[in-house]
Design a protein around this nucleic acid. Structure first.
Lengths: 116, 116
DNA sequence: TGAACATATGAACATGTATTCATATTAAGG
DNA sequence: CCTTAATATGAATACATGTTCATATGTTCA
């Protein structure tokens, strides 16, 4: 990918300089995209939403969302790996909850936006 | 998909009732997921980030991000359709900018989260 | 220990998506 | 008008992703 694809015809050299100075790094952009990707699936959104109400076990979530136990479990794995939910075991039952308050506040920002 | 997959063994009938009352609708979950999906790609994140600094044209964006003009244009189409960016034409040049302030505030919430 | 239950997980499949390539559209200037 | 520049777009491709199905793991209790 050559940097000069528009070199002759670039419109605003000064603006480009300004933006380049403030530019986020590749890895920041990738991390940020990863973070938001977690919220980009309806099943995960619902899971996060109900966990925002209260801690729940896998079977309860599966029932409330009407999604198979396996599908829920797979999604919870993704949420765990992204450190967006945490879990605790009580006997056979595994309880899940939101890992921190940022999560709900991001969800709410999104809801604000779509309800306009 | 049967609703009774856990009917015999559900742990918390009371909690489930409470959650069901507060549950978001399917369409809300889908809309919300769609909204966040826009932020789930590094190229789009970068585009939104630079447009947060200032209005820019396609060629400038392509240069700053080191992404082909075509790829940028395709992503801008997605952002336009999601009403997350707006554009204005000035002769041959098309300028893009963020459609409203929610966008940047969502981005910033995300950045806060990953920088912890 | 063995049966029953809650959860996790790997493989397979179908669908979605980001980029590239080639080409179309739109506008300005000669 | 004809060329050139800026942007848009359709098709193709490669890759990611969500669900299902079958099965494994871990825990309780008789």
């Amino acid at each position: 990918m050559e940097k000069d694809r528009c070199a002759v015809t670039i419109i605003h050299h000064d603006l480009i300089k300004r933006v380049e100075d403030k530019m986020i790094s590749d890895s920041e952009a990738v991390d940020l995209a990863h973070f938001f990707k977690v919220f980009s699936d309806p099943t995960r959104v619902k899971i996060l939403y109900v966990l925002g109400v209260q801690e729940m076990c896998v079977c309860d979530i599966s029932y409330v969302l009407d999604v198979s136990q396996s599908a829920v479990s797979h999604q919870l794995k993704i949420l765990r790996q992204a450190r967006i939910v945490k879990n605790r075991r009580d006997g056979k039952v595994m309880y899940y909850s939101l890992d921190d308050d940022h999560i709900q506040s991001v969800l709410m920002k999104g809801l604000e936006h779509i309800n306009e």
